[in-house]
């Protein structure tokens, strides 16, 4: 899609949205991203922000419903979809969503490891964690170690 000139009003809303995100104000982020997306249903960034706001507010049903109503935009957000399914205990659906991906990114692999753990597929979960440990370097190394220990304990 060609980059279009953004109006000053839209820029002002994005400034509000960035501020809300920086402040961890997910209610406000939801309000502003909903306004942006309502005004421009082609705005995939506003759509993404709206979905993340729902997730951060624990509104997983609302997130899934919004994705269902906007399936074309939602195809770009498989991690978010699978995460909502996981949190709603639709674990088999979450697994299916993640398995359908040709090249799952590290976030999807992380979620896959959690989904497999919940499904008591411990050996496969462990193998996903081993690969993640090798290929990631972020702020969650300790949490990942703890999760891997839980998986290992379940195998023994």
């Amino acid at each position: 899609m060609a980059q279009q000139q953004q109006t000053a009003a839209v820029t002002a809303l994005y400034v509000d949205l960035q501020r809300a995100i920086n402040n961890g104000d997910h209610e406000k982020a939801l309000k502003v991203s909903s306004k942006l997306f309502g005004d421009n249903p082609a705005d995939d960034r506003a759509f993404h922000c709206k979905i993340v706001s729902f997730i951060q507010l624990g509104k997983f049903d609302d997130a899934l419903l919004t994705m269902k109503k906007n399936q074309e935009l939602a195809t770009a957000l498989p991690f978010e979809k699978a995460y909502c399914e996981y949190r709603l205990n639709r674990t088999a659906e979450a697994l299916r969503t993640l398995r359908n991906l040709e090249n799952p990114d590290t976030r999807c692999q992380e979620l896959l490891a959690q989904v497999l753990y919940r499904l008591e597929e411990h050996r496969e979960s462990l193998s996903v964690y081993r690969s993640l440990m090798k290929n990631t370097q972020d702020d969650y190394e300790e949490e990942r170690e703890t999760n891997m220990s839980a998986v290992q304990a379940a195998i023994q």
């Binding site: 953004q6 839209v10 820029t11 994005y14 400034v15 949205l17 960035q18 995100i21 982020a29 960034r45 993404h48 922000c49 993340v52 997730i55 951060q56 991690f79 978010e80 995460y83 996981y86 976030r107 992380e110 979620l111 959690q114 753990y117 702020d139 969650y140 949490e143 990942r144 703890t146 999760n147 220990s149 839980a150 304990a153 379940a154």
Partner: peptide, 21 residues
Amino acid sequence: KPLFFDVALSLADYPSLEDKL
């Protein structure tokens, strides 16, 4: 039950808005 963190939630982050500001 062993401790198990929801790391995926921490990874459910907002996209960058840099080019929109």
